[in-house]
Design a protein around this nucleic acid. Structure first.
Ligand SMILES: NC(=O)c1ccc[n+]([C@@H]2O[C@H](COP(=O)([O-])OP(=O)(O)OC[C@H]3O[C@@H](n4cnc5c(N)ncnc54)[C@H](O)[C@@H]3O)[C@@H](O)[C@H]2O)c1
Ligand SMILES: NC(=O)c1ccc[n+]([C@@H]2O[C@H](COP(=O)([O-])OP(=O)(O)OC[C@H]3O[C@@H](n4cnc5c(N)ncnc54)[C@H](O)[C@@H]3O)[C@@H](O)[C@H]2O)c1
Lengths: 213, 213
DNA sequence: TCCCTGTTGTTACGGATTTCACAACCGTAG
DNA sequence: CTACGGTTGTGAAATCCGTAACAACAGGGA
């Protein structure tokens, strides 16, 4: 019944939601797919098509109610509630993540932090006690956590991912430079600035050859 | 002549390259698309098709020479040379980026760092002096920089991007939570953990409804 | 009331990407 | 020197996704 929704579409929804939130801040009450598209470099048709997977949210001749559509998108994405996050690895990056103020306002709460280094265990990052990663399984089985964030060295990442998955977590944000293996029903997103750069070089190398100005 | 190559293909090449480097480290000398695909969760056909855009690198019956293919990919992507990187914004995130040891070994050298805060200007991060972002244009016109990394607050990001672009930079790695506007000939990659999480919630919310064990 | 402007929701089309399937080929063993 | 298991490179088929186009409609003004 629920037509299968392409993952690319799902990935664009949060982008729309963020833009709508910004428009709302600016005091805009309605927006057309045209206007929204210009802001995001997306064609209006794309936006309308994406939204049509979920229902009819606009009004002909006027566009979309900013707050109304935002609420709908948040509902669709499940952003109308809080999500519990566990962070594994409190090295340099892990600390930066724990202290980043961008998650909380969006409903992502880091409720647990783990590390294997005895020197780190027991310390506090952003008001959360660092637990021994041996306790990961026990803790996660007793406390509801929705998303796991992996910030350990690459060689330890698969093991950490496996533990998270075994503990029942079905969404993982991975910062380690490797592609984790997970079951089909577990969502993974990789954050990898090096890969991002390495794909851009192809294009700037190319332009040099093509002989720009 | 050079058949247009899909961007998705380009984005996968660095992943292949990294896996090949890992295989080389393990002492493997040849690898089949099958084996490589298992490691990366990519179908063998996909790998072969991707590579076929650039030439014929394998041997029937054996597979690919690990070092040979790695060298080819690095050449294709332009990773066989060093790239100069400029970082704008040395707040918490900017410092973490400057100190991250993962760029240098891949040939990405942060050669300049900028910030608008007078308190930050003149200080040193990872042995590089922080310059006033007013000097951005002057500096970039005199020193060759290939890639710009944006780590400033969202409200300042478009302005920074514009400056980088005007200074001739054609590749931008953006950490600010917004979608920068750039000319067609400028490559952009956005790093945004919040968006990543916000798309995963759709799937884990869904599973809850479907009623998993 | 009727017409005009603006914008949606949707269907149909076409292009892009992935998958399939197999002929061609390599190296080895007999 | 032939046969065989293994694997590539690649067209053709299948699937996925984005774009175009337009009927339907909302609101406002004459
Ligand atoms: N994607 C990015 O933007 C980005 C940026 C920086 C670093 N990284 C990657 O993130 C990871 C961490 O980087 P870092 O600079 O913080 O490294 P780090 O060495 O400073 O920190 C790693 C932490 O993980 C802990 N750890 C190791 N094995 C563990 C295990 N099995 N269980 C729990 N904790 C464990 C260590 O004790 C340490 O505290 C690395 O893989 C690095 O490549 C990614
Ligand atoms: N993608 C991620 O993983 C991630 C993580 C953390 C933060 N962020 C984002 O990165 C950005 C920086 O985060 P932060 O925590 O470092 O913030 P911050 O406030 O600590 O640092 C921002 C820095 O940018 C400087 N700056 C401001 N305007 C500038 C301008 N016009 N030119 C040059 N420099 C300017 C400020 O002086 C400051 O030093 C924010 O947009 C934040 O949302 C992204």
């Amino acid at each position: 019944m629920t037509l299968e929704i392409p993952e690319v579409v799902i990935n664009r929804l949060p982008v729309y939601a963020r833009a709508l939130a910004a428009l709302a801040m600016d005091g805009e009450t309605v927006v057309s797919s045209q206007t929204l598209g210009e802001r995001l470099d997306v064609t209006p048709a794309q936006i309308r098509k994406d939204l049509s997977y979920f229902g009819r949210f606009g009004k002909q001749g006027r566009g979309y109610n900013v707050l109304g559509l935002l609420a709908k998108l948040r509902e669709i994405l499940g952003l109308d509630r809080k999500w519990q996050v566990a962070l594994v690895g409190v090295g340099r990056l892990g600390q930066a993540i724990a202290e980043y103020g961008g998650f909380e306002p969006q409903g992502f709460q880091i409720v647990a932090v783990f590390d294997s280094d005895p020197a780190a265990v027991g310390t506090t990052v952003n008001e959360v006690v660092v637990r021994d990663s041996e306790e990961l399984d026990t803790f996660l089985r007793q406390n509801p956590v929705d998303i796991g964030v992996v910030a350990v060295p690459a060689h330890a990442a698969q093991q950490v991912v496996d533990r998270l998955v075994n503990a029942g977590i079905r969404a993982i944000l991975n910062y380690a430079p490797m592609m984790p293996h997970v079951p089909l029903d577990v969502a993974v997103r990789n954050i990898d600035p090096v890969l991002a750069m390495q794909s851009m070089t192809f294009y700037i190398k190319r332009q040099d050859l093509t002989g720009a100005k």
